[in-house]
Amino acid sequence: MGAEMLLKLHHLHLELPNGTALLEDVSLNVRRGDALGVVGESGSGKSLTAMSVMGLLPGLKASGSICFEGRELLGMKDREWRRLRGAGMAMIFQDPMTAFLPVRSIGAQIDEQIRLHDRVSRREARARTVALLGRMGVPDPEAAAKRYPHQLSGGLRQRAMIAMALSCGPSLLIADEPTTALDVTVQAQILTLLCEIRDSGAGVMLITHDMGVVAQTCTHVAVVYSGLVVEQGPVAAVMARPLHPYTQALLEAIPPLDGPRPEALPTIPGRPPAPDARPEGCVFAPRCRFVRPDCAVRPALREPEEGRHVACVLYDA
């Protein structure tokens, strides 16, 4: 684990102007060549985490620390942050149909990003765009660059989106539910592409609600619940033996694809708290099957085993 640290979130706290905390104490690390899966259900704050790294949340108050390649991002001038966005770190989104501007060809939109960060001529930019599209597996990239988003299939659109994100050689790629809008067979193609990007040495942060996707593409996983990281660790270890009761419940709730069919799936009673009604103590306590009196004090993220972090009283020595 000597790889270079790329992104370090330390006690990131994000709140609305009225003081409601959307994220409380999110700490994550992404190293070069790592893929960190950030898993959570809707409203858990996983997308907010990604957006705050990109600095795309004006109007929200962030505190703590976001350290990217050794530079502190919080408090950075928007001009400097802008130079990083798209060049040092890039993002791909859930629905490539709406994420692209519908009225310009995808080639023009990729060219734009290249020319925003590098001083190159239109011709050079287009040549790079076509080469990128080709590398992303878009057939006939030259013609594809001239097409409009609605003229491509969902899979090709997402490939184009990834090509755009990679156009300036970012060291961190943030993917926010990149395959949720796609069919499973196409999803597998896009996930394979993400794995290749990770293997080429970039850091990947994959935001998803799907444990299966994380397991198949990521090296590390962080489970987010109600604005907090409750468990973090290497994917294989977490999938094999989840520590936090929430992670356990989340994994059990997935219907099995082989073996005997259970009469009923294990479920989690209740639902996640709203950001303005978070419990004082452990945020998962009201739904937890192991709840006990000392859950009334919020547990810190501890490292009970090498490389594995969990915020639960069960693992307090």
Binding site: L56, L84, R85, A90, F93, L101, P102, L116
Partner: peptide, 26 residues
Amino acid sequence: GEDSIRTARAKGAGPVRVWLWHGLRL
């Protein structure tokens, strides 16, 4: 409020470009 404007900002486009080039276009 469109997603494509968020993309434009994620690309590193400045506010002038985002408003006049992407926003007006839509």
